[in-house]
Amino acid sequence: MSADFWAGYLSGAVGIIIGNPLDLIKTRIQAGEHPHSPSNLPSHPTATTAHFDRLTSLARGAAAPILGYGALNALLFVTYNRSLALLAPENQDPSAASIWTAGALGGLASFVVSAPTELVKCRAQVARPPRSSWAVARDVWSREGLRGWYRGGAVTGVRDAVGYGFYFWSYELSKRYMLAYTSESSAAAGQEMTQTQEALAVLLCGGLAGVATWVSIFPLDVIKTRLQTWDLHHAPTSESQPLLSEQRSSRPSALSIARSAYRNEGAAVFFRGIGICSARAFVVNAVQWAVYEWMMKTLTMGQEVPITV
């Protein structure tokens, strides 16, 4: 397979390993408070960390993203690079619009993997009592089949298209500016830009791209999380066990969940957990881009290969 496939796969897996503890907190905060939640389910940010009773709980829900997000990242980068090659003229720096569009197309392509991965991850992170990713995946499949894995898929698709558009746009433009500035500063001092300076630029731009991405889509991510974990907060009681078909028909739409959240908790609910998410995004994406750039150079035998094909 192509170098950008394996570079994307490895960088995605590394990012999940690093960022899962903060992602676990973010998901539980987003899931919010529900009137039908079990009493031992964390429903407020202050109660979230009380459930980290052992170190292994910080890795809860990581199995699905490590496998799924590696494949997602590989698909994302391959689609982005190929799309940009078609959109941008040869021998010219691609325009900001071309970069954003190629990123959005990459996000749409990754939906096939991201929708079931996100659903399993979120349900494993919020479930009480704790359940593994594999148990969650099996349960969803046995109850609803393939359709169940894509619950919340429309919101996930829109989120990924918009988010990855800004992801590549912010990374490429900030890197272009930063490398030009560093090169000019080094030239003015009579020196050449070092590999350390270039690596620091990649880390900083990758981190900034991660933050910019999540700020642009965070309200959509809150809605997606609540939609995908709705069943966990509205499980049927022992006195009344509705048929599966009735339970499906009673599920609210993404728009209904958004309206209910706004009515009950105000506009602030759509940005709850954004601080933790931004911290995670900076670290994870700084490392992801560094790993991706390094892998691209390694797999192409040390030749200088630009991120955009």
Rank of each mutant, 00 (worst) to 15 (best):
N73P: 03
A74Q: 07
A74L: 00
A74F: 08
A74V: 05
L76C: 07
F77S: 04
F77L: 13
V78E: 02
V78A: 14
T79N: 11
T79Y: 05
Y80F: 14
Y80R: 09
N81F: 10
R82T: 15
R82A: 06
S83D: 05
L84F: 05
A85N: 06
A85M: 11
A85Q: 12
L87H: 00
L87F: 15
L87G: 10
A88M: 04
E90M: 05
E90D: 14
E90P: 05
N91R: 15
N91E: 15
N91K: 15
N91P: 05
N91S: 12
Q92W: 14
Q92A: 14
Q92T: 13
D93A: 12
D93C: 03
D93E: 15
D93H: 15
P94R: 04
P94N: 08
S95P: 00
S95I: 00
S95M: 02
A96W: 13
A96D: 13
A96E: 00
A96P: 08
A96Q: 13
A96L: 07
A97R: 03
S98P: 01
S98F: 05
I99V: 13
I99S: 00
W100E: 06
W100K: 01
W100P: 09
T101S: 09
T101V: 11
T101A: 09
A102W: 00
A102D: 03
A102V: 06
G103S: 11
G103Y: 02
G103E: 01
G103L: 03
